[in-house]
Design a protein around this nucleic acid. Structure first.
Lengths: 219, 219, 219, 219
DNA sequence: ACCGGCGGGACCACCCGTTCTT
DNA sequence: AAGAACGGGTGGTCCCGCCGGT
């Protein structure tokens, strides 16, 4: 009994609650899953690898994320959550239209050239393409992936749209320019997979900015 | 003698040579592989599925394509070969710069919105991300994929570049516009995976064409 | 509390711990593996057969012994461990040199005519003869087999050597006689594979004993 | 017809007959099979490897040796035939009993330490241990192996027995000494698989010779 | 909450024998 | 007789999900 008391006294370290420990562990698993997804792709994604990278037993893992799909979807959600917050922050306080386009380009490059984007694409391509076990599920994996993506990207797009509109660009045009800009960067990010060419990428983005400037002025 | 002649006549059955039979079978396997790759993605790609779809025994399959990688790479090659020829054909006989951009857009849409492109991206994302078999190989799968892509896309790009230059656009600018155009379509094709919106896509491409026209005239 | 006590009493069922269950299963697998190895030889050794004989799922099997080599090596170790203990026990309490030779012969016959010995030979012959996976491993299978054999036979030989020396035979000579005796039995055990002849074997061993007696006396 | 004659004249090279070419090819296949058997053991024996080593197509191979068993048995026969002839030659012209034992030892070392012997053991151990498909075959593989071994070794043994008897050793004793000698070498050859020790082997053989000498004189 | 034994299915590489074709 | 295509079976490894223990 004395020993027990002593123990209690000694451990001044802020005794975590179960919920906190649990949350910590879920984070570690999620981070590990994202890492593995980035390294091996969905096709090479192994539950055991995640557990090992996270330094967690398979038992604990399957306690928090019972199935592979659970883990994959949670990972995607996790990583989108992280990224979308940062993007929204950027969209504020841009004065001119040109500055807005520049900031948008920077943000797009950050996003589309990140592992996160590749992971999202990878999962999206796989999409429903598998499973499709006979009877109708509540929602196929492909749909879930798409809805997660949408849920996080739409607010970001809205923020940028507002930023552009605030600099005086008509809503409709702002929307189109926003899409074109995002598409260009997205397209280049994909192109990079087959043949990288950073110098050219930079030049093209500069060209695009000047084209937009010209277009807006001439209007 | 009569019998022999008769025999020759009767046997309308196409009496194939070995090489012909072989080639025919390789084609069937490749077509099936492309189909499966398109339906299930690389992550869901099963050798047995291919054999079944092709209506070929697994033995024959493994005779022509000993390993999964062999088959996948050959499929990619196969499909690229088919597509790149068609693209080169289109690049000829365009008169004005605007017509060239329009034709290029059409071709890009055809290509980037096709299954082939998704397959290529899928494989590229997986890329090296697997292998990891210690010692240095001659060439990793990722590199092979990239080199196949390059081998088939570079001629296409060259053809389009020539077409643009022939309409009077300076080489450097033609190159950049070519890239931007391709990137936009590529980016939209990817975007489609997460949220499709054909009407908007059409509008954006039209906008892009007018931006290019303005830019070229103003120059 | 009473219920708990009662529970403890009632549950006469051997309430195994995980470790115990695990150990039990490993034993069953190992025993089955030894049996299959004896029946079919290494060339006919099938993982699935072992699992079936052991009455164990292939999953459990691959949990404890991930690869075929792991299982085979563990089997060899298992069977050697069993045999070497018995041999050492025998080597004690022999009085005369002749009695020692006789006991040694008995022990050798037991060992070399057992399935264990055939298994060891079988594995040793196969030895490195496979592997051939390019780059240098920590230790080839052949080396592992040899080191297991040595690890278990050396103590046995030492025990017999001591027994002979204790009856007054000079160390060097004792060593040689020990080896010759073992070799004769070993050689006969092998001979048996091609043509068995128990009567003659018995006669030869008797002859050998008398030759040793003569040789020792004459010395 | 003229062309045919011309052809006949020109080809001064000793036009092999079909039978000769056939025999050449069978030899090459057999040699290759022996080599593979020696390198990989029966467990690692692959028909395709043999064809490749022999530089022969699998078609040709299966023409001459339709099944794996056919080839393996033929290989064993082939190698025994080669070895037994040489042994019989040696058994002649030995004068003293001691010289006979020495020559016998040399011959035994040559035989038992050769790859041939290991191959024979390997096959013998595998023996019937496999197949055993339900209904009674004409003769199991194990029996075939044993009968091949006997067919070739018995004459050798008889030759050596005669040599010993010719030097004055009584038949019965000669037979026993012959067996003991062979067994010792055989036993050492096996021992070598687990732990080699050439110096000791040599010493033991010398000791054995002196023991035999003593024994014969004392008699 | 967490751990690891366990079940069993799935997949790919390999391999042997047969069946055309030359 | 020789060569190549082809058929199909098999075995080892891997992997996910479950569940009894701690």
């Amino acid at each position: 009994l004395t020993a027990q008391l002593a123990g209690t006294v000694v451990s001044v370290v802020p005794r975590r609650t179960q919920a906190q420990r649990s949350e910590r562990m879920r984070q570690r698993i999620l981070d590990a899953a994202v890492q593995v997804l980035g390294d091996k792709g969905y096709a090479g994604f192994r539950m055991a690898d995640v557990a090992q990278v996270a330094g967690v037993s398979r038992g604990a893992q399957s306690h928090h994320y019972p199935t592979k799909d659970d883990l994959v979807l949670a990972s995607l959600e996790h990583v989108f959550r992280t990224a979308s917050q940062r993007a929204r922050d950027r969209a504020h306080s841009v004065r001119s239209a040109d500055a807005a386009i520049k900031a948008l380009l920077d943000d797009s490059v950050d996003f589309f050239f990140s592992d996160l984007f590749l992971i999202a694409i990878d999962l999206a391509i796989v999409g429903d393409r598998s499973a499709s076990n006979g009877y109708p599920q509540a929602q196929s994996r492909g749909e879930k992936i798409r809805s997660i993506s949408r849920a996080h990207r739409l607010p970001v797009e809205a923020a940028w749209l507002q930023a552009l509109v605030d600099t005086g660009v008509p809503v409709r045009l702002a929307e189109d320019l926003l899409w074109l800009t995002a598409s260009i960067v997205r397209g280049l990010a994909i192109r990079r997979l087959l043949a990288d060419d950073p110098a050219r990428f930079k030049r093209l983005l500069t060209l695009w900015r000047s084209m937009v400037s010209d277009f807006l002025q001439q209007r």
